[in-house]
Design a protein around this nucleic acid. Structure first.
Lengths: 210, 210, 210, 210
DNA sequence: AATGAATGAGGCTTCATTCAT
DNA sequence: TATGAATGAAGCCTCATTCAT
């Protein structure tokens, strides 16, 4: 499942090959060096075009970032959220354990396959705080169906009393974000399967009705 | 427990008041705007000195960041780690539950009280990847004594079989980092006590020998 | 008498409709914004052609200005001068007074009807000093027949002694140019008839043999 | 009476030698090439400073022009107007003839001594029309006291009936502006004394009560 | 030692001009 | 032939850094 969020997005955008090249180069440079540390000269060079060409396609350097972030905000993030729900929740899980494991695995693999993408998001959120609200909203929207599923399992007596489903989901989000941060910020690497195993083991004992 | 990591560090450094002012101003500006978005003119202004004075004290702008990050790396991070171990592990905890709760609370409060510091770290790690190794090492060093303590509890039969202490600690680190990321990057706010309660509740059921 | 110098010129030039469109657009833009403040992109847009087409027709942007100014210099200015002489001097004037009035009126109306043209000339003279010589020469050529006519009136005793006809004509040129400058540069407006009346009144008393 | 308007203005401004050098260089270049045809590099070179120095002193290139035009508008133009009135009207003139001659001479010499200044004004008015209103107002203010003086002569019977003093002054303004335009735009040169003689001769016969 | 003016390299951007389609 | 994407030189401006006072 080597989904490359950014390449998928590029493929769907109705733009020329040259614009694609500029966006791809920008994405990589912004992700690895940061927006302000990237010069338009570097972008042009990496994209294999003249600097003027970059500006024929995008009015300003900021417009390049916007051209990347806007579809991410408006299309990719919601789609990723929907995909996540569909991929995970439409399947049948013999046991609650399998669901939790799939949640961990699915998200960790997504991040693992999209390091650059994640790094760009981290940088953008730090430097342009106004961008984060929609992501927070997307998180919230994703949380809801999961909370419902957990409630279903709870009604079936699979989850012990005394826990709000909300807190379970929030904690899973935090945990997954923690792994993500360790990968992106500290360069640590986790085998998604192993990390998912460990997370699942702990959470399951934490929530399961023993 | 309003520990201000940065002010503590400044207080301990053997530097003039003027240098302190420059470092304090830089720290704030770097944290809120990013290193590259901060001009030496801004630093001088905020510190109340002339731009030339800044350069009498620090050879380059990068040297200011280094003057902040080096003691953080060499002194603050290890010290924070040691303090953490001492504050948390030197006390007696009636129950394992109390230890876990204290771990969560202590770290979440630390971050909550040092948002600027954390934001500076996030930015620095993103833009200057070479800085992160020592932090990773510090994490590792902190992990060790905790692993030992958990092993102690395990030997006492307080922790169920089938878990490596290593994985417990790693998961707690990830969880705490997850909360931190949500605060710093997404601007969410958590009451440290509530978050600590929730985390503790889940982890305890996850690890406790029921 | 709504003579449009520029449209007349365009009509007489042996060029394609497309070239005409480009010249017309350029003329307007150069007049209202100045040569250097006008981009070839603007010209193409206003002319309704592609930028490349402009360059198929004119080798450089400067060539467009030259294509406008050269016929102005070589054809329009002399023609305007000739027309002026013919329109004014071929008629019979009952009195000297009527001639002077017609001179003023004719020139002021010409400028009044060709503000854009005049503004272009002003800008071109300021920025490209080499253009002005032929205009000065044209002025000189126009002056000659008028001087002769005035000499005729002088011989008839209609003009007082002690004046050179040369100085009369020079002063009238200056006066008309003064009105023009006030219109073009200062945005003032004069009714040509009123201004002609005033100028005539003064000049007539100045030169007439009372 | 070699009054150099611009140098006088520079001398009165409370600025450093370096700023003076930049303004002087800019003034000359703007006057001879136009604002948009002058690069900041040229200015720096001519002023003998680095390009960055220019920007330490003036926030933008436009600010340089403003730094020149603002005192011209607010101080120089009104002062020139006042000086004109004082220099010309406070003296006693044996005859009306002498007054008229002095008016012509004074203004023509002023322009003759300040070609660059005049060329800058012409260019600025063409490209930045909003600047001209104050100059028009200054003209108007100057006109008033002259109208009054002419009325005085009229009451003394020195000026013939049937003329408004207003129209006399307006015509003199136009005439002087005409000479100015011929100097600035067409590069013609007039000896101020000769031109003043001719103008006076004509106007005097035009207005005098013979 | 402190100041802030001066420097100039380098960044973003525009635009006249060329060229492949 | 007409198009408009591509080019790159040059312009304006910022800012880390140096230096004279």
């Amino acid at each position: 499942m080597a989904e490359d969020i950014f390449e998928n997005m590029l493929a769907k955008m109705d733009i020329t090959q040259r614009q694609r090249a500029v966006l791809r180069a920008s994405m990589e440079l912004f992700a690895t060096q940061g927006f302000n540390q990237t010069s338009t000269r570097q972008i042009a060079q990496k994209a294999g075009v003249a600097e003027g060409t970059v500006y024929k396609q995008f009015k300003t350097k900021q417009a390049i970032l916007t051209a990347i972030l806007t579809p991410i905000r408006e299309l990719v993030i919601p789609q990723v959220a929907v995909d996540f729900v569909q991929n995970v929740l439409t399947r049948q899980y013999p046991e609650l354990n399998d669901l939790v494991h799939e949640i961990f695995l699915n998200r960790l693999e997504l991040v693992d396959n999209n390091r650059n993408f994640a790094r760009l998001m981290y940088g953008s959120f730090l430097e342009q705080p106004h961008l984060r609200q929609e992501v927070v909203d997307a998180f919230a929207k994703v949380a809801t169906p999961f909370i419902e599923v957990f409630e279903y399992y709870q009604k079936q007596g699979k989850i012990r009393e005394g826990l709000t489903m909300e807190s379970i989901v929030q904690l899973m989000i935090s945990t997954i974000l923690g792994y993500t941060t360790r990968m992106i910020l500290f360069g640590q690497h986790f085998d998604p399967h192993t990390a998912a195993d460990e997370g699942t083991s702990l959470v399951m004992h934490g929530i399961a009705n023993s």
